[in-house]
């Protein structure tokens, strides 16, 4: 469930290049993990609706994946695309920091 891949692509893409590939690393269903996932989803829907891919990886089940993205803190959300890679750690309760950290702003209105 947690590692389920949720790909929500909206039909109308104003800027094809401007998609966000996000990966959320969690470890089991802790309150922090659940909060982080909920928060992240909310921000994405709010700021970049339909232009993001969100992948949730549970390290409890796939510990070998922790090395690839240099995950230490849990939860961590990694912005793979657009470059450069950005990481935001924590339960993502601080919205402003998440938005700045992941640069989740609709481009050029």
């Amino acid at each position: 469930m947690m590692e389920a891949r949720e790909e929500i692509n909206s039909a109308t893409e104003p800027l094809a290049s401007e998609t966000w590939e996000l990966r959320l690393y969690v470890a089991g269903q802790t309150s922090k993990s659940i909060a982080a996932l909920a928060n992240l989803r909310r921000y994405c829907e709010q700021h970049v609706p339909g232009r993001y891919q969100l992948e949730v990886i549970d390290l409890m089940q796939h510990p070998q994946l922790a090395e690839g993205d240099q995950i230490l803190a849990i939860p961590t959300v990694v912005r793979k695309v657009p470059e450069p890679i950005r990481k935001v750690i924590g339960d993502l309760s601080n919205e402003e920091r998440v938005i700045v950290g992941l640069d989740l702003r609709p481009q050029s209105r």
Binding site: A73, I74, P84, V88, I89, G90, D91, L92, N94, V98
Partner: peptide
Amino acid sequence: EIEEAGEYDLDG
């Protein structure tokens, strides 16, 4: 590369 937003631990 790291931005802190909320509580976390080093379970990773």
